[in-house]
Design a protein around this nucleic acid. Sequence first.
DNA 1: CGGAACAATTAATGTAGATTAATTTTTTTT
DNA 2: AAAAAAAATTAATCTACATTAATTGTTCCG
Lengths: 191, 191
Amino acid sequence: MYDLLLANIAKYITLTQEETDYLISLLHTKKIKRKRYLQQEGDTTRHTSFVISGILRMYSVDKNGFEHIIQFATPGWWIGDFQSFLQQKPGNLFIDAIDDSEIIQLSKTDLDNLFIKVPKFERFFRILAENAVAAYQQRFVNSLSLSARERYQNFAELYPSLVQCLSQKFIASYIGVTPEFLSKMLNQQMQ
Amino acid sequence: MYDLLLANIAKYITLTQEETDYLISLLHTKKIKRKRYLQQEGDTTRHTSFVISGILRMYSVDKNGFEHIIQFATPGWWIGDFQSFLQQKPGNLFIDAIDDSEIIQLSKTDLDNLFIKVPKFERFFRILAENAVAAYQQRFVNSLSLSARERYQNFAELYPSLVQCLSQKFIASYIGVTPEFLSKMLNQQMQ
DNA sequence: CGGAACAATTAATGTAGATTAATTTTTTTT
DNA sequence: AAAAAAAATTAATCTACATTAATTGTTCCG
């Protein structure tokens, strides 16, 4: 159940049995059915979530009702509205399950206590956050400087398995074009 | 000299005199004249930098030679190509000084040692990285879901002092439009 | 102080990708 | 397996913003 998470943690820090047990005592698992929300605009993010099965998406909805996917999360990934979680204020993002999924949750309160009781976790979450910054920096640069076609190619290279399993609609939303345009683009490419 | 940085650190962790002295022994200051590069594409980022005076910009240059400003950094801000710094590999970003500036630098090696000798710093840099993730998430959402005019308004609200002191060229590059279009937009707005 | 480099403005023209809408294909539900 | 819902395709039209180019205004430096 917690193997994937523990393996993930073990890459960066080494825990004693006691520390592992304490961590596990703070965790809760949660199942989310396809199309069900983990979080909606206006909710305050009380937990950070680690995906163990399925796939979720985080997205914003603009004032014209269009969705912009910021991130997909497959097993082994963390997902959450960082701003809302850190400041414990209502956020403006949505998260829902694309397929039936299962996640492990850790509440903000428990995480804060964990940092105090087992300071080693500061290191783990520092590295996690640093990697997230690097990833966002890169994604942002790509969205600024690549054309729609290049953004698609880049996505396909980076996440070949996602290209297989996601509908075009979601990929279009992630790379920032309409489904109609993506369809046209892909069919032109073949000729 | 190091006051601004120490005050910044003191917001999140408390250091003994000894720890402060040790930190200071690892720091170097550097002056960067207007238009001089702190870093160019292909360089590996060996240091993380904290601005104490002046203003710098970090940007990417796309294959058509256009610059896209990712971040400005004024006193009190950290700046650096995270991906290159973390992986110690050549990066693809540029950083240069918009005005004569002064920064404090800390090398990757010294930072890694600092984490081992004074684990408290794990917490400080964790919080820093978390805040950076939240900021990037928000900037990214804005770039996806707002029009050029809204992005300008948002920038002007967030950084009123920068709107004053930066040339339109730089603001245009930050919000992701051409200088010509920004000029037109601003003059239309007044009518 | 004068001229060279740089920044801003204006306007005509061009285009990547959006919008709308109708049709077909695929998936889901019962 | 049929009906309903969702996804993909195609094509015509539209638009926010880019491009190009010429003009003016500003800053900086010898």
